[in-house]
Amino acid sequence: MRDIFIDLLRQKALKDPRIVLITGDLGFGVLDRYRAELPHQFINAGIAEQNMTGLATGLALEGYRVFTYSIGNFCSLRCLEQIRNDVCLHNANVKIISIGSGLGYGALGMSHHATEDVSILRALPNLRVYSPSDLSEVQVLIEALMSYEGPAYVRLGKVALDPNDVRTVAINGCNCWRKAHLNVPCILLTHGTTATLAQSVCEQIPFDCEVYTIPCIKPLPENALYTLLKGKRLIVTIEEHTLLGGFGSAIGEYLLDKGITVPLYRFGLPDQFITVGGTSDELRRLCGLEASNIVATIQRRFQQ
């Protein structure tokens, strides 16, 4: 997903000299073409994310459209106060591109697991939070980022995308992955890397349901959600992120605020650090993020 995103950004930057990409000394092999073709719109800020983010703010205040790039926590938590006080307070045109979302870096350990970023960043005023699931959403996202002059956080998974999988989507909407029937009783909502997992759950569950991806976590597509969620018998959220304050929490807040009384089952990561090795798939399974477990849990709770 990151390769496609950076290539789309390169294409935009070739036409727009105001676009600047700043990396925190990461992106080996990923940023090479951008850097070769656009050396004057590229900065390696070194391993100094606080300065990278402040610097991005300064460039943005002077009219540049700045993208900072690094691994999950490095461009988010490491420089959180710079994002809050510099970027967000000043509504600076800085887009933070965070790669390896969730457990994407697997056995590299918890330092590289971006598993609390959505909770923390969606709390910041002025900051939009995006988590695309596939090529279609990335394509729409790039256009959305270009037409928006304020700050945004973009969470990109490491999953490889099928370039043929192009759907018609709207970035501020709820994007249907698999539509069963009208008026199905159950709806699965997800974002980012867990879209395929949600699809598997949908296929295995013994009653009709639909999967929707929500690529814009903040602001949520409230009007579309209202139509979608009202009258359902069960809402399920799935995310590769802590259950504390993430996407599932955002949906829960929305339901409470709108007075929609539908049972909500949230699936995500437990409130603990993952300190054992494994591929990202293995770690997801370890945390219960696998289709069989989610299906069994939904069935058990639904029957209660």
């Binding site: 004057h40 606080q50 300065n51 983010t53 402040g54 610097l55 991005a56 703010t57 300064g58 460039l59 943005a60 205040l61 002077e62 009219g63 540049y64 106060e81 710079q82 006080n85 510099d86 307070l89 000043h90």
Partner: peptide, 24 residues
């Protein structure tokens, strides 16, 4: 020009402004 309060923020922002001036 810029809001501050927490220390250690403005110099990086100023570096970005100065870099923009250098480029242009």
């Amino acid at each position: 020009e810029f809001s501050t309060g927490s220390l250690g923020h403005a110099l990086s922002v100023a570096a970005g402004i100065a870099l923009a001036a250098q480029w242009r």
